[in-house]
Design a protein around this nucleic acid. Structure first.
Lengths: 338, 338
DNA sequence: TTGAAAGCGCTAACAT
DNA sequence: ATGTTAGCGCTTTCAA
């Protein structure tokens, strides 16, 4: 079903059909009607490939996340998909499997596919750099949540340091005078920032952090369980265990339960992200809520703005770094007061 | 960067460049080298839009799921994405938000985008029918997990009835003589089938199911909590609560804990899907494991086969219905024996 | 207000 | 073995 068939049936030229269907250009009311009728009868639908080739715009945005199965990224994907839908754009989703090499390949594919822009949460704090920068040089790109050093692209995320300040103040108010940090290896910006914020505020407040109380693994429930078990085995945990995300925290509280360590009585535990399952923990997790809706909306907005400015990094203005302020959600894994 | 520029630099025609780059057609080794060098130097990348227009193949597959945020569908998406990646295909992901109208729109968009095929888990057992059938008439389509009545398309999923038989036998062995069913409204095939399987085997085994012990809401933790609270308030739950998915089961066990009802001592609880969080429930959920990897692989295989046969339902052979056998995963929310 | 025609970048006949 | 060329379906000058 092509525009030519519609044109023939309506007895007009293809140009006219195009004008009617795209609503651009002057067409008499009578012809408009004829064309629309013909199109309806034939069940015509534009061929978006041909249109894309002609317009060099695909109305498609690519998104690359470290792991689809991480509930935090899933909900980000969901939000982005909805935000794009509002603008009539489609989402091409890629899973980098936390591997910078896979990530680089996916980015290249997206470029080859002529997506209008790319939203990426880089899987690695340094190794993702080259591919991200190269991609950003070719088309609008915004980094989401995580970012990679040595690049100059738009970014939307939260102020991890400010968030950690809130977490530490809350724990301190709950009586914590020593703390452990359980995160992933410091190879991505999220963990880096969160750890930095943790450490800084711990110092300020005089909360002791033994060097063996910094445990770095990955973002998973399993790692949380392992880390907690290790803390418990090695002479018992400190007053608080601060986790770099909710999955880890869920693992930590689970291991504590398994070992008969009371949370929050004996040790307070905090998560990060406020995924849906955070409230289902036993006890329900105190965590940091990231304004995901807002993050997704800003990312899509930035992309649209960049696209309007024209492709190619240099053509556009300086990059925007939008750090939203997350909020602390207090539940039952911490104490309200001493 | 076009093929023409590469051709000019290499001093050959565009046809030759195309032949070299696609590896089709005879080209002398010397020219091959010249072309490749030129392409590399220019950093040439195919324009997949132009290629798609020419070949009428996009190497893109569309996937529509009722809800991205449901962990079961998320993991299915992940598997499908990986399986497609192996064939050099991309995934265009759409969220139907459990709304047949949204779903119909997304399907239409995917058709307009000339995807090579569509994988859909219909959100509604009847209302999704028209759109799914229409889409299937136009291009290869396979239904995943759920299916919709009145359509004739390929389908891959599990045998829900067989799964429920296993569940009921296990509960019966654990001493259950009465049971409740908590699911979503019977508007999708999953719940329908599971409920049918539940009911049938309950009859066989002489397990009593009071009519007020069939509670239908939606696939969410909240609904599980509500339903369980209702069962507890109304004179106490039966010996077992069979849930149509893990989210519901997680809500049920949570409510039981909150109300001091021992699981599995006072009441046994089962889930379905074996999402990652199932093992994290308190107690860990006994549930039905769907072979997701296999489901995804079969779906992608069917799509490839259909594409090879040529587009348009009629052109292809009769549709395949592949029902895989799920397995029961016994954890701590049920009793091993009476 | 409408039509004719060029051309987006690529591939595959067909010709040499 | 290589080049010439038509054409995928659409939009947009330019001309009438």
């Amino acid at each position: 079903m092509t525009i030519a068939q519609v044109a023939e049936r309506a007895g007009v030229s293809t140009a006219t059909v195009s004008r009617v269907l795209s609503g651009r250009g002057p067409v008499s009311a009578a012809v408009q009607r004829r064309v629309r009728t013909a199109a309806d009868e034939l069940g015509y639908q534009v061929n978006s490939i041909a249109r894309a080739l002609r317009n060099s715009r695909t109305d498609t945005v690519g998104m690359v996340v470290p792991s689809i199965s991480n509930p935090f990224f899933t909900s980000l994907v969901e939000r982005v998909e909805h935000a794009l839908g509002r603008e009539g754009k489609e989402l091409l989703l890629c899973d980098a499997r936390s591997d910078p090499a896979v990530e680089a390949r996916r980015l290249a594919t997206l470029v080859a596919r002529n997506v209008d822009g790319i939203i990426v949460s880089p899987s690695h704090g340094t190794l993702s750099g080259a591919a991200v920068q190269e991609t950003a040089d070719r088309l609008p790109l915004v980094q989401l949540d995580r970012f990679v050093g040595g690049t100059s692209t738009d970014w939307v995320g939260v102020d991890d340091v400010a968030a950690m300040r809130q977490v530490m103040d809350h724990l301190h108010a709950g009586g914590a005078r020593s703390a452990a940090f359980v995160g992933s290896l410091l190879t991505n910006s999220s963990t880096e920032q969160r750890f930095a914020g943790f450490r800084r505020r711990a110092d300020d407040l005089g909360i002791a952090v033994a060097s063996e109380h910094v445990l770095l693994g990955d973002y998973s429930v399993e790692w949380g369980e392992t880390a907690a078990a290790r803390l418990i085995a090695a002479g018992g945990p400190p007053d608080a265990i601060v986790c770099a995300d909710d999955l880890i925290a869920l693992g930590v509280t689970r291991a504590c339960r398994a070992h008969g360590v009371d949370v929050p009585g004996r040790v307070q535990v905090t998560g990060y992200d406020n995924i849906e399952f955070a409230r289902l923990g036993e006890p329900a997790l105190t965590t940091v809520d990231q304004p995901r809706e807002r993050i997704a909306a800003e990312a899509v907005r930035l992309l649209a703005a960049a696209a309007a400015d024209g492709a190619g990094r240099e053509a556009r203005g300086p990059s925007a770094h939008i750090a939203l302020v997350p909020s602390l959600v207090v539940r039952d894994s911490t104490r309200a007061d001493a």
